[in-house]
Design a protein around this nucleic acid. Structure first.
Lengths: 233, 233
DNA sequence: GGGTTTGGTGTAAAAAAAACAATAAGACTG
DNA sequence: CAGTCTTATTGTTTTTTTTACACCAAACCC
């Protein structure tokens, strides 16, 4: 038994399912493992939790090291702790998902070194460890969350069109494009919540009639929530 | 201490919020700590996870040692891992909640030794560690779950009256008795799901008109779910 | 200026939820 | 056994929410 192995009793890590929305598709940011075990395989970004680090802090650190982003949406989902989930010892992992605006994503030294790439959810292959299961559970959580909390906006630019918002929902919920949700009903519903404000700006650079841009108004949302409102789509 | 070593100076435990329903009230099973830290304080039952034990298995073990029950409803909720949550070292804990029928609860050696007692949710005092927070989060989870999955039945005897079922919901959701839910609408809704079957039996030993007894039909429920049905109250 | 593409809008029917109160059945009392 | 007490049981109406559905408008491109 190697020296490291002899110390290796149990540990905990965080793994982060980083979602993005680009090209009308829901994506997940994966890294290619450079070391054993599972060398060369795609995996969720994660790391062992430092002895003096809170779990949320560890998840934020993993996210920032890879994307350069701080203060983005992050939620703990579940802990995976099957005895044999890690080939080298007992490591349980606390799974998080985060939602980022792809346009904000900057290549960091870490992401470069770990060859981070966006993968369409629908075309993720076999991942290292139990990461397929983790991804699956996190996606289910996102699908529920997006329907009863205003988290979808975290995936869009600050200013967006209603069509983009609808496509986001169709993509996250895995509905057929432009058939899953009725355009008129969707707009009616989202606008009737009064949490979107029209910008004085139009979409630019498109080869057709440009759409109005909207923004999510968190203050109004918070106020409505305090009054008993609950977001629901 | 080497860096590698320090990663493994940590442990993980499970804590179990065991809910019961008795006397029209939602209860939680607590134990009184017999050793430091927090000696004498009420706490959630829990234990360190064995090196070769899955997390769910550990939660089942804690539950069985205390109540003698196996195969009851158990769900992982969240992991609590603040650096200083445990005064003696870095211990993160995976929180579970379980739902049991109070009438099935038998005093075990462990429950006797740990002076386990049912506490009304509304009158739980200050608990050891971060257990108040854990209880709170688990209760919130139960409140959501009971509304979109048929888990309420886990808290009732196999045969129950519709009034008991309604009181269970009012208690879990913390609604005023007989004012939170309209009796007629409640019965209409639950019966229209077709997942309850009438027993050929009536309530006994009550000093008034006895009510019909019903049972939850899980097979029917599973079939409906497969056909796209979703439970909602 | 005609073609192409997406943006934007309202109404009617159906379904679901909410509001609401009187009678029935059994147990107990005297 | 008649009367009282307590909880059980049952439907209808109104309101709200959800669904279904189709045409004209605006900008760009050629």
């Amino acid at each position: 038994m190697s020296e490291v192995e002899s110390f290796f009793k149990s540990a905990f890590s965080v793994d982060n399912v980083i979602f993005g929305f680009d090209g009308g598709d829901l994506k997940v940011l994966l890294i290619q493992r450079g070391a054993a075990p599972f060398r060369g395989k795609w995996a969720l970004p994660g790391d062992l939790v430092y002895p003096n680090e809170d779990l949320d802090t560890a998840a934020e650190r993993v996210l920032e090291q890879l994307t350069g982003l701080r203060g983005v949406y992050l939620e703990q989902v579940r802990t995976f702790g099957a005895v044999n989930r890690h080939p080298l010892g007992r490591v349980i992992t606390i799974a998080y998902f985060s939602l980022i605006k792809v346009s904000d994503f900057a290549l960091t030294p870490a992401s470069f070194a770990q060859s981070a790439h966006w993968h369409s959810i629908s075309s993720v292959g076999e991942l290292a460890f139990d990461h397929n299961e983790i991804l699956d559970i996190c996606l289910q959580r996102l699908q529920r969350k997006v329907r009863n909390a205003p988290v979808g906006f975290e995936l869009l630019p600050q200013k967006f069109t209603l069509t983009e918002l609808q496509q986001l929902y169709e993509s996250v919920l895995n509905l057929p494009k432009n058939k899953g949700l009725d355009k008129r009903n969707f707009r009616k519903k989202i606008l009737s919540m009064n949490v979107l404000v029209e910008c004085d700006e139009m979409q630019e650079g498109v080869a057709h009639r440009p759409a109005k841009l909207y923004q999510f108004d968190r203050e109004r949302y918070d106020q409505f929530v305090a009054e008993g409102f609950s977001f629901d789509i």
